[in-house]
Every structure is written in C-alpha cells, then in structure tokens.
Design a protein around this nucleic acid. Structure first.
Length: 779
DNA sequence: CCCTCGTGGCTTTTT
DNA sequence: GCCACGAGGG
C-alpha cells in the first residue's frame, strides 16, 4: 500500500471524489456529520503528499480558532511535515498575519493593536460623547453595529448610502470613529478584513504575489461567509489558483450577523465551478434521528438540496415529552439525565440545548439543587474578564501609550484621584490638538494634572522596568506595579480575580512555549531588494507554477524585525478570547444554546423549550427568511445527537417575570410520526399533572423559591362551562377549527358573556366569545 | 469618589 | 425576574 493510498483509505466514495478533485474550483455540500473536516484536511494532505503543492502554497480559512486548531492537529497527524508555517487560520488571524507583514502599505503603525467588541463599543461611546450627540438618539450599541455592518459590506463612510439626517449623522460618527482608531493605532475586527481586502484590491503586485503563492485556497463553513469575506476570498483567487469551498446551506444560522448563504450559489455561478460534490452519508446519527432531520428541513424552500442517509440502522425513536411547566420540564430532564448516567452514559455526552440563554436558568437551578455537575457554555470568556482586560490595558500602554481606549480603562483604576472633571479637561485638550490623551497630559493644570502626570510616569516606568524581561516577568511586574494586585488583595471578593491574574501569567507562559510566541505575529523577513521573503514558496513542489519573476512587494523596510513577545501576546489575547472556564475538566452535563452546539456532537441530546414563540422565536418571524433560519437551527440541533434524542416543550413558562402559556412548536408537527415516541405520562391537564407538579415543587422547599422566583400557580380561576356544556380551565389545550390548537390564557365572565383569551401560537393570541366559538378540549 | 437605587430591556454570536 | 447601566446622594 502506498503512502498516498493509506491517506485515502477509509474514505467513502463521495469523500474520495472530493479529496482528489483536480486543481479547479470546487463546492462541497457537506451535510451534518458527513466528515467535512476530514475531507478538508485530507485534501490538503493529499495535495502536498502527491507533490501538487508545497505547504507554503496552501491557505485554509476557518471561522473559529477551534476549527483552525483542529485542522492543524489533524493535519499534523497525517503529514510528517511541520505545519507551522502554513497559512491555516481564521479569517481574522490570517488578516492579522497579512497586515503585520504589510503594515506600512496598509497604513498602520507596526505595533497596531486589535479592539475586541467591548473595546469597540467604548471607543464608539467616546466618539459620540466627543461629538456632543445624544446617546438616546445614537445608541452606542446600534452605532457600533452600524459601523461593523458597513465595513462588512465593504463600505467606508464615503460609500454609505445616506437617506436622511439620522443616516448622515451616523456616517459622520463612523468617519470620526475611523479617524480616532487611526490616530490611536488600533483596528477593530471588521477592519482587519476590510484593510486586507482593500490592500489586495489596490495593489496589483501584492495581489499577484499572493494569488501565485496560494495555489490552493480552502474555506470551511462557507455558508457563514459575509459579503466582505466573500470579496476577500475573490481577491486571493486568481487565474493560477483554485478555491475549494465546503459548506452546508442547511446549517446556515448566522444571517443575523451578516452571513450570506447566497454566497454558495454566487460562488458556483461566478466561478463557473466545475465540480459540486454532495456529502450525504452521515456517520454520526441513527436513522430515526436523520429521518427527523430530513423531514424537518424538507419544509424549507430555496435549498441546494441534500438528504442525509446512514447505514447504522434506525436506532431508538426520538422521544418527545410534554411538560406542564418549565420547572417540570427541568425536573423531568434531570431525572432522565440521571438515568442515562446510571446506565453508563458519561455526563459530558449529555447535552441540553435551548434556543435562548434565558432558558438555562430553570435547568441550571434544577441541576444545581440536585447536585448534578453541569457546564454552561457561553458567557464571559477568559480574556474578556474585567481584571484581565485591566491588566492587558496596562500592557498595551507599554507597547503604545497613545491607545486611548486602554488609557481610559486604567487611568483611574485602581483609583488615583483622577475624576470625571479632570478626564473631561484632558479629552478636550486632546481633541483640540488632535493628539492622544497620553500626549495631552501637560494641558491639564492643578491637582488633576499632577495626578495625570504621575500616571504617565507610571506607564513610562513600567516600560523602562520591563525592558528585556521575559513575557512572564513583564506581566508579573505590571500586575504589581499597576496596583491591580493590591487592589484585588484588599477587595473582599478579589480572590477569584487574583487567581485569574495568576492565570494570565500562565496563559502567557503557555503562549511563549507552545509554538513559539510569534506564529501569527512574526513579520515576514525582507531581503535586500525589499522583496518579502516567503511570499513565493521557497521549495517549489512539482505542481507549483514556475516561480514568477520576483516582484517588488511591500518594501516595508523594518519588517525584518520580529515583533516583541508582548505585542504578539496582546494580539493573541484579542483574537482568541479563550474559554469560559466554568468547571472545565469535570464530567458534567453540557448546557448551551443551539447556536453554540453547532459543530459539536453528543450521544444524547435534549432539545428543550420547543414552543411557538420560543423556538421558532417570535422575533424571527418578522425577519426575511426568519422562519427558515429557525428551522435550520432546529436542523442543527437535531443532527447533534448520535444515539438518543429528546424533544421537550412545556405548557407554561416563566418568561420576563410572567407566566406564558405556549403552544407546542410547529417544528414538532413537521417531524415524521414514525420516528417519534411520545413519552409524556398520561396524567395531563390542569387538574392533575399540572397542579401536582407545582405542589410538589413548592413542597420540596429547598431553594425552590430561587428557582421559580415569584412564580405561582396561574390564578386558579373557576372553570367556565360553555353553552355546549364543556368545562374550560386556564392552561387547558383546546382545538379551534380555524386557528388550530391553542392554550387558554385567561377566562372571564359566565354564561353567554364568557370569553376566553387563547394563545394559538403562530396564529397569535385571540379573545373569543365562548357562546360563539366552537372549541374542543384537547386530551 | 463610591455605592446604592431605579429604570429599561430582554434571540442567536465569532473574531 | 434578572441584569446591566446610569444618575444621584452620602
């Protein structure tokens, strides 16, 4: 067996076809669980192994650091060559790498820093304040969203279409924000992409070089690309190279942040893609689960069309449970999960999925009170914690004292007598002179001015005293010298924060030793002719085109110098926010939103809160394509399960402090009966199960108040008897010939006057006169 | 300058 | 019902 065939062993027919496609554009429609990552990595390995390209001639783009790491790891296991020099990373990571090499051409300072979402928001706030605008009319969050959105459409302020006065003002803010970022030497996430795109677009020599260098460009999760990312990819793709895009239109769930599923069809058309391959064989789930997924997604129109299949057999049926309350749903879930665990399923193989974060609370309380370990995904990540951001701000000021965002974050933290008045003076002075806060300190007189000067001196001293130290020593010094450590030592709840600061030192240490600190930040060396080495693959593989005549590219004279470990670490911290380290390591049940579950898989999956208004979410219904996106979300959720899938919904739910009566999700109706098994015990209705659950809840006492809060039995209004002699109660499910199934929310009046407010889910909530409406109780 | 109280909003999120 | 943020009092 040759090495090459060993590489290709175990691939199925479809996968093999995709992996060994000739060098031309290709679109791979990879269904959930069809071995997508495997195809991507094996293709890279195969291309290199068969001599069609050298490692330096490959660029592979992902959306998350996790996906990029996974690719590198798998590739490293397949190939005996070092993968370090390869351009494999996230869009943002690769842009960073590109801009570090071409900082001068890109018009950036060599040590530019990256703003995360928090930093960006505070920068926007500063601009709005500086322009003396009303934060009510120009809500910082919305303005930040507008700016990021514009950039992701490839629009600079001058390109934005202005339709009214408000829009004109927004564009003004956008422009001022850009000026501010430029002045401070910082870029936000979208800017990384846009700068790279523009530089490639406007510099033919550079474009030639990169297009020539990257014979093969591969993109993961192509359905999630936005307009700018697509345009970016086009810039890197030219006459000599090919784009290999892998994606799944059925798993497109990020339209709300600009993803354009249409990029898949556009790509196929604009690039005249000769090869479209579907990966439909699923290696993850049993038949019933796939039947459910296929049936559900077939309700969507505008699909590229795919059907998952398996050879694993039907497996267990999909279990469906109807709870009487969100509390009861959580109780049921935890008992079921305990049983699974007793039967041998590790807790980490049990996932609880929900549509929105707020839903985790009830479940968390139930698990917490039962003493079952769990882990919630989402929430603050390591590098986003306040104490970490503070420490990083000091470190950034060492690198670049003109970073006003960082300056403002820590100028008075820990407090050193610099108040709002003083800062206002400082900011005014800076604005007038067009200089940074650090540079404007001299303009402030009096006690405030002296304190500011002392702060500047502190920053200078930190820079001096850390010169030549290792990264670890630098951070240790700064944490002490800044007063952060003392501050948290004196704070009663500072213990955890101190530990996190220690952890920051460890993270830095790990970063330095790991793969050499500068993987992303080492600037490309420039030879005497000013040609950036490494742009043209040093060792040409057989399939590489003949090396082009060296083109004078980017004579960024100083790029030969390696960026300091500190600068590299700061970049790393901005681009990779790290884990939310909640009880990592323990065998725990995994709680997360459906979005967060994408790309993961578990033996057992619970999809909870399958109710109209929640899932599909009510806010999505008014969006264009909103319902279909919700359905794709449900499709993603279903296809996470390997062996066992539970679907649950609840008749009542405490939401925004109010009890809501919900109708089961339409998605449940779209699943094939044959694959389902209803497991709700047959004691339904308000009088029995519902009341009993609530009574049990109150009786069990311990901490329950904190679970349901002020939740209480819905006002137990007296049953109303209709003209037909049917007794109706609040919370009861009824059927209406026109509106379908609904739940009684309120009952009023008696006799011919009796009215009911009924939640019909997708048909809305209606008031009906019971003497007229024909209602049939359900169950 | 810090802390407490009041108000509003509330789907999903990576970099 | 809960959280985050901003205003105002001590």
């Amino acid at each position: 067996m040759t090495a090459s065939s060993a590489l290709l062993a175990h691939l199925n027919h479809e996968q093999l076809a995709a992996v060994t496609l000739p060098a031309a554009h290709a679109l791979i429609l990879a269904g959930a669980g069809s071995g997508k990552t495997r195809v991507l990595t094996t293709r890279i390995a195969w291309l290199i192994h068969t001599g069609q390209v050298s490692p330096a001639g490959v660029m592979a783009v992902t959306f998350t650091n996790k996906a990029a790491k996974e690719m590198l790891t798998r590739l490293g296991a397949m190939l005996p060559i070092p993968v370090r020099g390869m351009w494999i990373g996230t869009f943002h990571g690769l842009c960073n790498r590109f801009l570090r090499a071409h900082w001068k051409l890109a018009g950036l300072p060599q040590s530019f820093q990256i703003l995360d979402a928090q930093d960006q928001l505070s920068a926007v706030k500063r601009v709005i304040k500086a322009m003396n605008l009303d934060e009510e009319r120009f809500v910082p969050k919305q303005v930040a969203w507008f700016i990021a959105g514009s950039k992701e459409e490839g629009l600079r302020p001058k390109d934005v279409d202005v339709r009214d006065e408000h829009g004109r003002k927004l564009v003004e803010i956008y422009q001022a924000y850009e000026d501010q970022c430029q002045r401070e030497g910082v870029v936000d996430f979208a800017e990384l992409l846009l700068r790279t795109y523009e530089l490639m677009r406007d510099n033919a020599a550079l474009r030639e070089h990169y297009q020539h260098r990257f014979r093969h460009i591969l993109v993961d999760e192509f359905q999630d690309t936005n307009r700018l990312q697509y345009a970016w990819l086009k810039m890197f793709t030219g006459a000599h190279n090919s784009l290999f895009a892998v994606g799944d239109d059925d798993q497109s769930i990020y339209a709300f942040r600009g993803a354009q599923v249409g990029n898949m069809a556009d790509f196929e058309r604009e690039f005249r893609v000769p090869h479209v391959i579907k990966l439909e064989r699923n290696y993850r789930s049993f038949g019933n689960i796939l039947d459910a997924a296929n049936a559900l997604i077939s309700h969507n129109t505008r699909r590229l069309g795919k059907n998952l299949r398996t050879e694993a057999g039907p497996g267990e049926p999909v279990r469906v449970y109807e709870a009487t309350s969100d509390y009861a749903e959580a109780q049921w879930l935890l008992e079921e999960a305990q049983q699974l665990h007793r039967d041998g399923t590790p807790r980490s193989e049990i996932a609880v999925l929900y549509r929105s974060n707020a839903q985790s609370r009830v479940i968390e309380s139930a698990l917490f009170n039962a003493g079952i370990p769990y882990r919630v995904y989402g929430g603050l990540r390591f590098f986003e914690r306040a104490e970490i951001k503070h420490a990083l701000a000091y470190l950034r000021l060492i690198e670049n004292p003109n970073d006003d965002t960082s300056y403002l974050r820590v100028v008075n933290f820990p407090t050193r007598g610099i108040g709002a008045r003083t800062l206002e003076q400082l900011q005014d002075a800076a604005r007038v002179s067009g200089r940074s806060l650090y540079q404007s300190v001299g303009a402030v007189t009096g006690k405030g001015g002296a304190n500011l000067a002392a702060f500047n001196a502190l920053v200078d001293a930190m820079r001096e005293n850390t010169r030549g130290l290792t990264l670890r020593e630098i951070i240790e010094h700064v944490v002490e010298a800044s007063g952060l450590a003392d501050h948290y030592r004196n704070e009663k709840e500072g213990r955890e924060r101190l530990e996190n600061l220690d952890e920051l030192v460890n993270a830095a240490e790990a970063f330095v030793t790991q793969e050499g600190f500068g993987k992303d930040a080492v600037a490309l060396p420039v030879d005497e002719q000013g040609v950036v080495a490494g742009l043209v693959p040093g060792a040409l593989a057989a399939g590489d085109p003949p090396a082009p005549a060296p083109v004078e590219v980017a004579p960024d004279a100083e790029t030969g110098e390696i960026v300091s470990p500190l600068a590299a670490f700061l970049t790393h911290a901005a681009l990779e926010a790290g884990d939310n380290q909640a009880q990592a390591g323990q065998d725990a049940i995994q709680l997360m939103t459906v979005h967060a579950a994408k790309g993961l898989e578990f033996d057992c999956v619970f999809i909870t809160g399958l109710e109209e208004g929640l899932f599909p979410h009510e806010n999505s219904l008014s969006d264009y394509d909103g319902l279909e996106e919700e359905r794709r979300l449900m499709y993603v959720a279903i296809t996470r399960a390997r062996k066992r899938l539970y679907l649950s919904f609840s008749q009542t739910r405490l939401l925004h402090g109010q009890t809501r009566y919900n109708v089961k999700s339409r998605f449940l109706d779209e699943l094939p009966e044959g694959a389902l098994k209803w497991i709700t015990p047959r004691v339904q209705g308000f009088g029995s199960g519902f009341a009993r659950d609530y009574q049990a809840a109150w009786a069990s006492g311990s901490g329950l108040g904190s679970i349901v809060g002020a939740g209480r039995l819905p006002a137990a209004s007296a049953p109303v008897t209709t003209a037909d002699g049917v007794a109706l109660r609040v919370g009861q499910s009824v059927f209406h010939t026109k509106f379908g199934e609904g739940v009684i929310v309120t009952l009023e009046g008696q006799g011919t006057d009796a009215r009911a407010q009924i939640n019909f889910g997708r048909h809305g909530t209606k008031w009906l006169a019971l003497s007229v409406a024909k209602l049939t109780p359900v169950d």
